[in-house]
Amino acid sequence: MDELVRLMTPPLWHVVRAYGLDHSLAQDVVQTTWLTLVRRHETINDPLAVSGWLTMCARREAWRVGKQHRRADATEAESLEPHLPVHESAEQTAAQDDETRRLWTAVGTLNERCQRLLRIVAFEDRPDYARIAEDLAMPIGSIGPTRQRCLAKLRAVLEGDGWRGDDDGN
């Protein structure tokens, strides 16, 4: 079971985060997915189907939690909508463009493997871990940890360049 958790937790996190859940909600969904496996493991007839079962369970739970969360957010947004600005200001556009340029310049300083991995993660809603593993010649289980190391390197480059980041630590 420990090996299954080690191999499947990174892909489950990716699946769940693809539904737009924040870190706290995503953490709850992944934990609920593992708890559901513990409670319902006897319903899985084919041991080779466990990863698919976990993924399906995570998707369903992420969809359910996301739907509930969006419903709550929609009610709040409806009350705030008349007070929100209609267009982004020129200053906001310029700041966003500068931030994007600085980010991709920093990505360009990373090794090729990190650049490729981060581009896949950044531009694909639901990257296929099997394909990533094959393309980058790495085990599926090392994709998550490698991504984390690459992001840490990127963060260090950005912080060295005076990048402030946002207030919630992302």
Rank of each mutant, 00 (worst) to 15 (best):
T9G: 05
D22H: 06
P85Y: 11
E61N: 05
E159I: 07
C150Q: 06
T93E: 13
G160T: 03
P145V: 00
R126A: 07
E159R: 15
W34R: 04
A137F: 08
R102V: 13
R6H: 12
H41F: 08
H23M: 07
L35D: 05
Q92F: 11
A94H: 10
A90T: 08
A156V: 10
G162K: 13
R116L: 13
R131V: 11
M56L: 00
S142V: 09
V16H: 04
V16D: 00
T43I: 07
P10Q: 05
F123N: 12
V38E: 06
R147H: 03
V16F: 04
H14V: 01
K153Y: 06
L117H: 14
I120F: 07
V65P: 00
T33M: 02
D22A: 12
L37A: 03
Q92T: 13
D168G: 03
G144D: 06
A122M: 09
R164W: 06
N111K: 10
E76I: 14
D135E: 13
R113S: 13
K67F: 09
A133M: 02
V157L: 05
L158F: 02
S89G: 12
Y129L: 06
E3W: 12
M56F: 03
T33E: 05
A74S: 13
A18V: 00
S142F: 10
A152E: 11
R64G: 00
W104Y: 13
P139N: 08
W34F: 14
A58R: 00
L25A: 12
A137C: 11
R17G: 02
L21T: 08
N45R: 15
L37K: 09
L103K: 06
A95P: 00
I132Y: 09
D98M: 10
H87N: 11
I140T: 14
R113I: 07
A133F: 02
I132D: 10
I44Y: 04
I143A: 12
Q115P: 05
L103H: 15
D125V: 04
D166C: 11
R70A: 05
R39S: 07
P10R: 04
A49K: 05
L154K: 09
H83I: 01
T55H: 07
A133E: 01
